[in-house]
Design a protein around this nucleic acid. Structure first.
Lengths: 366, 366
DNA sequence: TTGAAAGCGCTAACAT
DNA sequence: ATGTTAGCGCTTTCAA
């Protein structure tokens, strides 16, 4: 296999046209509108191009002229490491990539880790639109994106007025899950949740932090839980909620440990994601707690691993979510009203939820 | 939260300058070189910009002018689904993303699924360079990339003369693995390998196809195995090799099944990836074969799941691989000689390899 | 079928 | 500290 010489770009469309003694239009047409010139001429153009080492129209110049970048930006305020490790996130990414592929446009990942305050990368991205995936409502990158005069679609969170959004009905989904637990008879519950704000708090969460959470999805789920359990006679202030900044199985386990150490009498652990729930499951095993006999554990998302583990959870179509976001963005040409797509969710009762044991059973066995 | 009106871009740097009665340079400086103008003037510029709804310098125009796109392209001739599901690939991606993040440049995924012949997306990508990850040597997208007058780094495969490359020494790594098996006494072996060409062949692989494989990594590994086992007195033509187009655990299992059904006497299954090996492990379990007592199984890559499963495998630093590729590309400014980075590999003997049972043991137990 | 003219929006010398 | 001048390389009316 041979490499063409890699000198700096010497030939341009103009120089090629000059060499050929034709106009630039003709050369441009040779590449973009083959039907606009005779096959022989076109052949001559392409051959001369090869001879001169002209690599074809410069994509950036073309973009400037056509006002189309041919790419959508993805803003993801999370280390890609974690994004890639969470199957739910991977599903969204995959769906988005599929939509982009169908449209023949690139997917431009914008460098924006949680710590980074530098939003220049957002300004520098040559894209026709942005998909923003699950960022806090006070994220500076998000603000920078919204500044840009291109369409934007937000996936999951936050909710921003006037901006397209796709996500599940977290409220309703969470209520259905909570009702399931209430119906089973659980009144002493604990919650493991994901990051609630940009500052790290790997600890119990006071009410104020729950209510002011900058991650709308978490806030909504907590609020829905609170409302449902209050209605069942549970004082929410007394319900322990443990937060984790990083989203992975190990942190789920450590959160469960922290919660169970302090509140050994909870009968159910409600996790706002399957990943956390998987960790909780592991911790329960380590403690010799049988699930669901001794402890009920629930998740959220419905990832494959969760299904395999028999987890009671709320399933949401993550691949669809990514696809919808992509299609929504790509078709956003000149829609007027902002669009919100609400995805269906489904409560999937598995083998990790059951009625709590009575006090008697606790002492004497079932 | 409020959205600014989203009319089509009306204000430009020029119109803003006119409105302010200053030159365009000054406005440009306000954004790009704050130290080049008085703080008051800068403030006035920025305020007027906000008032006029000027979103800051257009990234594409800037790129055209500066000849810097601020992004690197990633060519990955695989459905992203599979790329994301293979931890080894995810590691590479992650490392690359990290390098990009450090440099503050975006990562532009080029739509190029295996089936797609349309290389326009490569031409259209406004990037400063390409990373090409594991594609067949006859891939049209690769050819298109090499046409572009920007630096390119190839990860793993193929080897192209004059192009930077980063990857392990597959030859040496495979030989060390093969020697391990030879030393254990295995002479009746079978191989499960990944896709060897762009056409699908979920079946046994004749010698010709092994030798002409368009995926250089697979070709090298097979050749190294062949050479080592031949040296140990094994006629390679008699060694069954089964290929799978898709790279996932289930296909690994079905490949193992196909091979073991036809060759029940093999004592070792050599897999060219951990993913396939994990599948083989599952299939062995299904058949009631004990590993390694009844069957030795080896992998390649050293992913976490493999380590957890105790797989004997060759570990390679995938995260480093991605990082190196990114750094190599971003530092490629005006290097002269092409650079090849060979990553260290390490044979990790786990609990899935052991001496074959003797014929006697086969009948009477250990 | 081909060409001429007019920018897309910006930045970087080089003045002043 | 600010302005002037010249493009970056291309596509696209419009006219011939």
């Amino acid at each position: 296999m041979n490499r063409p010489m890699r000198t700096r770009r010497q030939a341009t469309l103009a120089s090629l046209a000059a060499e050929l003694g034709v106009s630039r239009t003709t050369v441009s047409n040779a590449y973009n509108r083959p039907d606009q010139l005779s096959p022989e001429l076109r052949k001559r153009v392409l051959e001369t191009a090869r001879r001169l080492g002209y690599p074809g129209p410069d994509p950036v110049a073309r973009s400037l002229r056509t006002r189309k970048a041919g790419a959508v930006g993805l803003l993801l305020t999370e280390n890609l490491s974690y994004a890639f490790r969470d199957p739910a996130a991977v599903g969204v990414l995959e769906g988005l990539a599929l939509a982009c592929e169908d449209a023949g446009v690139g997917l431009h990942l914008v460098p924006a880790s949680p710590g980074r305050e530098d939003v220049a990368a957002v300004h520098r991205a040559g894209v026709d639109g942005f998909v923003v995936y699950s960022v806090p409502d006070d994220d500076p990158h998000l603000a920078a994106v919204l500044q840009r005069p291109v369409p934007t679609v937000i996936v999951d969170q936050p909710e921003v007025e006037g901006v397209d959004r796709v996500g599940p009905d977290d409220e309703a989904a969470t209520v259905s899950l909570a009702n399931h637990l209430v119906a089973l008879g659980h009144r002493q519950v604990g919650v493991l949740c994901m990051r609630l704000a940009r500052d790290r708090n790997d600890d119990f969460v006071p009410m104020s932090r729950q209510q002011e959470a900058h991650y709308h999805v978490q806030r909504t789920r907590l609020a829905a839980l609170a409302r449902t359990f209050e209605a069942a006679g549970v004082a929410w202030e007394s319900v322990p909620v443990v937060e984790r900044f990083e989203h992975n199985v190990d942190d789920g386990a450590s959160a469960a440990r922290q919660l169970l150490d302090a509140h050994p009498r909870v009968t159910a652990l409600i996790c706002t994601s399957d990943i956390l729930a998987l960790g909780a499951l592991a911790e329960a095993g380590r403690r010799g707690l049988r699930v669901p006999a001794d402890l009920t554990i629930t998740g959220f998302d419905g990832i494959a691993e969760a299904t395999r583990a028999g987890l009671t959870t709320v399933h949401q179509p993550v691949l669809e979510k990514g696809k919808s976001a992509g299609r929504l963005l790509l078709g956003a040409a000149d829609r007027v009203a902002p669009k919100v797509i609400t995805l269906p969710t489904e409560l999937r009762v598995g083998t990790t939820s059951a009625p709590p044991r009575t006090a008697e059973e606790r002492w004497f066995g079932p």
